[in-house]
Computed example of a mutant assay.
Amino acid sequence: MSDLIEVLIVEDDPRIAEIHRRFTEKIEGFKVIATATTGEQAKEWLEVVQPHLVLLDVYLPDMKGVELIKFIRQNFQEIDVIMITAASEVDIVSHALRGGAFDYIIKPLTFDRFKESLENYQHKIAKLKGNQELTPEQIESLWNTRTKAGTSEANDSPKGIDPLTLEKILRCIESIGKEGITAEALSAESGVSRSTARRYLEYLISKKSVYAELIYGNVGRPERRYFRVHS
């Protein structure tokens, strides 16, 4: 994903807010643009900066985080929310779900769980931006928030096919034009080795996501090119 995802942290404990900031900025593609310690301060920041994502605590000095979710839904439809809280009460969790929280992370927070959540969010936003039409599997994966990016299309992947690498390859495949792509070109675009790119392309042929043709160049040397299968 080329565009930075701008993040607003809403957390009344400055030490925890700093942890969230450091965690966020360790993940490529995210940038913290503001931190709020109260609900009212968060509302002001939302008006001014309109971030893509809010990392939101439940217990704030002047209101509960679920009240802020309601405010966001009423005024900023494009802003998403991930709850990070120790709250486990049913009414709070249900309000977060009904308010459309993307994820609900229980404290104490670990970096792995934090990273998983943000990367899932990142991949799903990229999927929505990168397609005019989604497959049924892609649509189902948008609601499967606790699986790592790409696993919805790779739960039955054979040995040697890594779900995260597969997701990266799939994102590159989505941009293939009528001219197709070679394993060498895919390697350069995705950052994997040529042999890895070829292995994943052949796997995608078996899944009927791409097909291959031998194309003869000017000097007569055949070149194996891969093309998207359009449903």
Rank of each mutant, 00 (worst) to 15 (best):
P108S: 13
S187H: 11
I176D: 01
I215R: 14
E6C: 09
V7S: 03
G65K: 03
V32M: 01
L164G: 00
G65A: 04
A101F: 01
V66Q: 12
R199G: 06
A126Y: 11
L186D: 02
L134S: 03
I161L: 01
E167S: 08
I33G: 11
Q74C: 11
S190Y: 09
A126L: 12
D3S: 08
E47S: 15
I5F: 07
V210E: 04
V49D: 13
E116Y: 05
S94Q: 15
A197Y: 05
K159Q: 12
T135A: 11
R225H: 08
I181E: 09
P136M: 03
D156L: 07
I27H: 00
I125M: 06
L55R: 05
V48H: 15
V219S: 15
L134N: 03
T135G: 10
T151N: 07
I125G: 00
Q74F: 11
V32S: 01
S157T: 03
D57N: 04
D103M: 02
L214K: 12
E28W: 10
A87G: 10
G177H: 04
V32Y: 01
V90C: 14
L68N: 03
L68Y: 05
I27F: 01
M1K: 03
L97F: 14
I5G: 04
L46D: 07
E223G: 04
V58P: 09
R146D: 06
L8A: 08
H95A: 15
E25G: 01
I161P: 00
E47F: 15
S175P: 10
V48E: 15
I5C: 08
I181R: 08
V229M: 09
K70Q: 14
F102Y: 08
D62Y: 05
R221L: 12
K148W: 11
V210D: 07
R21L: 11
K124Q: 04
V93K: 08
D156G: 05
F30Q: 04
I125A: 02
E189M: 12
H52K: 13
I9D: 01
A185R: 14
Y59G: 14
A17W: 10
T147A: 00
T147N: 00
R73H: 12
E184H: 14
S187L: 11
L186K: 03
K159N: 13
L53F: 06
Q122A: 10
E47C: 15
L56D: 02
E140F: 07
G130I: 00
E119P: 09
G191R: 01
G39A: 06
Q74K: 14
L214R: 13
Q138I: 00
G29Y: 00
I169V: 02
E179V: 11
